[in-house]
């Protein structure tokens, strides 16, 4: 008779808290909760915009609340975290070959950061036109 008795270890529910790499992954995924909130604030802004000037100004005023400022600061940090992780993984989804050589990962990441800087400055300029 076989003495085999394979032992199966249960995955703990908090597996993502036991390893820094997994925790960072969960923060990456969790950033989407605050980004959802930000997008909801924007969608609300569009709603207020459709209701006329007073309503829209009310929305702008609400954003001056210290609580709103802190919340936006937090959202900015997590959005930037999303950006950093997105850019660092981007080369893995790119399959560009130039003269028989795969495009270097560093070039792809640098190109992303370059475009990010250009877009950020462009947006800041266009809003103050």
């Amino acid at each position: 008779m076989s003495k085999r008795k394979p032992y199966i270890r249960e995955l703990p529910r908090d597996w993502w808290m036991k390893q820094l790499f997994y925790t960072k992954y969960m923060i990456r995924e969790g950033s989407s909760v605050l980004i959802t909130l930000y997008s909801l604030i924007l969608a609300w802004g569009v709603f207020r915009l459709s209701q006329g000037e007073t309503a829209f100004n009310g929305w702008l005023e609400a954003l001056q609340n210290p609580f709103a400022i802190i919340l936006h600061l937090l959202m900015l940090i997590l959005a930037l975290y999303h950006t950093i992780t997105w850019f660092s993984l981007a080369p893995k989804a790119v399959d560009l070959w130039i003269k028989g050589k795969k495009l270097d990962d560093k070039v792809i990441v640098a190109a992303h950061y370059g475009a990010f800087a250009v877009l950020t400055i462009f947006c800041l300029l266009i809003i103050t036109l």
Partner: peptide
């Protein structure tokens, strides 16, 4: 796959399975 990416970190032969999977998703 949800692109955790740890597979490619631990791979002792730099196979980069996470990249293979992303390309296959495309």
């Amino acid at each position: 796959c949800t692109f955790v990416g740890y597979c490619s970190v631990v791979c002792p032969k730099d196979v980069d399975p996470a990249a293979a999977i992303q390309l296959l998703k495309v």
